[in-house]
Structures are given as structure tokens and as C-alpha cells.
Design a protein around this nucleic acid. Sequence first.
DNA 1: CGAGTCGCTCAACGAGTGTTGAGTCAAGTT
DNA 2: AACTTGACTCAACACTCGTTGAGCGACTCG
Lengths: 190, 190
Amino acid sequence: MREDTVVSKPMTSRSARRAATQARILDAARQEFGDRGFEATTVRGVARRAGVDPSLVLQHYGSKSALFTAAIQLPPGDPEEAADHLAEVLKVRAAALPPEMQALIRSMLTVPEASEAVRHHLDERIDNLAAGIGGPDAELRAAITVSSILGLTVARHFLQLRAVSSASDDDIVRVASRALTADLGAERSR
Amino acid sequence: MREDTVVSKPMTSRSARRAATQARILDAARQEFGDRGFEATTVRGVARRAGVDPSLVLQHYGSKSALFTAAIQLPPGDPEEAADHLAEVLKVRAAALPPEMQALIRSMLTVPEASEAVRHHLDERIDNLAAGIGGPDAELRAAITVSSILGLTVARHFLQLRAVSSASDDDIVRVASRALTADLGAERSR
DNA sequence: CGAGTCGCTCAACGAGTGTTGAGTCAAGTT
DNA sequence: AACTTGACTCAACACTCGTTGAGCGACTCG
């Protein structure tokens, strides 16, 4: 009910310490989910990585599923600022995806909740992009662009395809930007 | 089932019958792996779907992992004939992916063996496509094209993105072909 | 400084898993 | 017809999982 913003009590010892371990558990969960996926991740494994007893994990998050739900929450500001698809492409540059994003994508093919989250996330981006480009088949072309970025992300960060792993970051961004905007650009410049 | 046993063929009852149930088990395995992924698929579930005792599944295939290996084998002729990337795009048309392909893709993010199989499969296609288009960054551009097709496949058959699920098959093929060949086409028509 | 709160650990349960060896019974062989 | 083969089932093992309730012990507070 009430948030723990009690000024009279020292925040460093009790509540802060609990919040710290809670955050440590969440971090461990994101890494485990991101590395192994939902099914192969065990509560015991998360606890081990966090240096904590397995039961404590459930005292904090209730269940493995609830822990997963918490682990795949994306920071809210992130997707909005990237309304431009070019900025999306640039995200491929990062050597490693943000942990929550990696956890989300890793399980998107096997866990309905993750699948739905990715679907909504991408649908939103498609709408934003489609509104920007206009023209016939705007939504479909936006969907193709966004799907391509998804495929590129999977190929690079999860499958490690040779051609996209050996190439430099700059090359990927340059060539991918040109390829994915060749169709959209024609519409824009006229 | 009683009819089946009594009225069955007098030709080869022993080996042929065993081969038939082996094939039935494999089909059931492909569906289960394709629907749930490797981890969530149980030997008991496969056996139930095949109408067979769980232990028989392992008598035929040795282990769950070996069964998975058998289930994700792609027919050999298929990938060769699709050297042209345009034909690849057309594969998106199919309402449902071939069962072994679906099983393969479903687990590609969580099972190393599946991940490696997809990686090799796509690397091969990239090489074929790159050899065909030539020019600077040929391999990288081919990789982007192939990755885009992967993303489109995932978006359509696994995530069911609104824009690619609601659109007609023909529209997808038409718009996707144009988008993905816009960059390559310039090089071709030189 | 003693009482109590509370973050945390310990030990255990029940369910479900992959896997195995022995047993069953019809099909095939002599 | 008697015997053998082999496809298949039954029952069980060993293990890991998520989850739970009781208990410990350090820290907080009156």
C-alpha cells in the first residue's frame, strides 16, 4: 500500500538492504533468462547466481513466472525515442543487447507471454513507422522493415551468423540502413 | 485400431509395421517440438500423440535429444532448389511451415543444436546469394536479405504480427519482394 | 538492554521428468 | 504344433523441479 519513503528511519540497513538483494535477484534472473530461456532457467540457478537461497527468490517475486514477468519489462523511455527506424538499425551495433531485451527475445518463440510482449512492442513500432512514411502499403512496408530488424537482431546476437558477426559494426549499419531504406527512401524523396 | 491390426497387409507385417510406427512417432515429435519447443516437449507427450507407450519412443530413437535431432532434419532437396532469394520470399506464403522447419525454428533460440543448424543453413544460403549478386559488400547484403526473410518468417508464423498476419499472401510477397530486392536489383541491372 | 521485527536459510514435499529392465503376446520360423 | 523372434507395454527408478512452512539470527526500537 504505502511506499517505503519513510524519512525518519535509516534507509541504509533494513529496507535498502532488502531492496538491494531484490535488485540483485532480478539482475541474476535477467541474465539466466537471457542466457538459457524461460524453461531451462531454474529458480535454483537464479538463486545461485544471486548468492541467495532459492526460497528467497520466491519470497520476493512469488513464482518463477512472476519473476520472468518482472525480468522482461523494458524501460519505458527506450522504445519511444526510437520512433525513427534508422535509430532502430543502430541498435544492432551494440555488442550486447540490454539484458531484459535479451531475456525477452530469447523466450519469444516458446513462452506465450514473451511472444505477446514482442508482438505488441513491434506492432507499436510498425504503427509509428507507417505513420511516418505514408503512401500505399505503408503499414505492410513498415512491418517488413521492422521484421527485418528483428531478423537482423536474431541473426547477429543469437545465431551469430558468420556474415553479420565478422563484419564491423559500421559496415552493418551502413549497408543495412541503405538496404532497408531503399524502398522507403524512394517514397520519401519524392 | 482392431481393424487395423487384423485386416493389415500380409506382405511385410513385422519390419514394415515397425517402420510405420517409427514414422508415426517422428511425426508426433515434429508436431510437439514445433508447437512447444524442445524443453516443454515431453517424451510422454510425444508418445501420447503417437498412441504409443513412452518407452517405445526411446526404443526407437534412443533419447529425447536424439529424437529432436531426427525431428529437425530438413529434406535435402529443399534448400538447394531455392538458391534464388525471391523463391525464398515466396515460402512465406505457405499458411504453415513444414513441420520440421517449424520445430527447428521454434527452438533455435534455446537449443544449441537447433541454433547451429539454422546458422549453417542460413550461412549456406547467404553464400549462394552473395555469389549471385556480386559487387561490394555482396556477402553482407546477402546476409541482410536472408536475415530479413528470417525475421519475416518469425513475425508471420510465430509472433503473428498484425500487419503481416492480416495482409493477404499476395500482398506480402509483392511488397516484400520489392523491398528486399530494391537494393540488390540496382546491382543486377547494371 | 531486552523484546521483537524481519530478511534470510533449512529441510522437505509432491509432481513430473527422462530413462531402463523385465515382462507380454502376437507374428514368424522350422 | 512347438519354438523363437521381436514389437510393444508395464512398472519402477533416480533425479530435478517449483514451491512451502518452520526456524534462525542479526538488526531495530522502545
